[in-house]
Amino acid sequence: MSKMHVEVVSTEQLIYSGEAEFLVAPALEGEIGVYPRHVPLLTRIKPGVLRMTVPGSKEEVLVAVSGGMLEVQPTHITVLADTAIRGEDLDEARANEAKRAAEESLQHATDDLSTAKAHAALAVAIAQLKALDYLKKRVH
């Protein structure tokens, strides 16, 4: 069976790099599965889990990502992963916080940000739970 090279990179580090025969990613408009020699595709992905079938191993490889972009080329796949949970509201809240920090030169987190942060933490927790769920299902 043919293979493709998968790379998961974030701003902070290279998260995963290796060969795969099949990959499932949580795209913005629904999960998509990719086999080698797929037509070039560019899409955004939601916070969730990437699943890969790796040659020579029955175990699937799981990589949890907090959103980002998926670039598919016939022989290689790149995931530009976000390091932080992103979203319009959250970015807005962060922006307001940065403004306030500049105005007051204070480091206190404000209510606005703590709510947004809580949301983000929740999203991460959900992504992790999804990964766990998936693992459990596979065991049974």
Binding site: E12, T83, A102, S105
Partner: peptide
Amino acid sequence: VASAVQLGDIPKMDKLIGP
């Protein structure tokens, strides 16, 4: 107009997004 301080020894994307 914006600032981020106490960035620590490890650069964190999280702190940069706001500013």
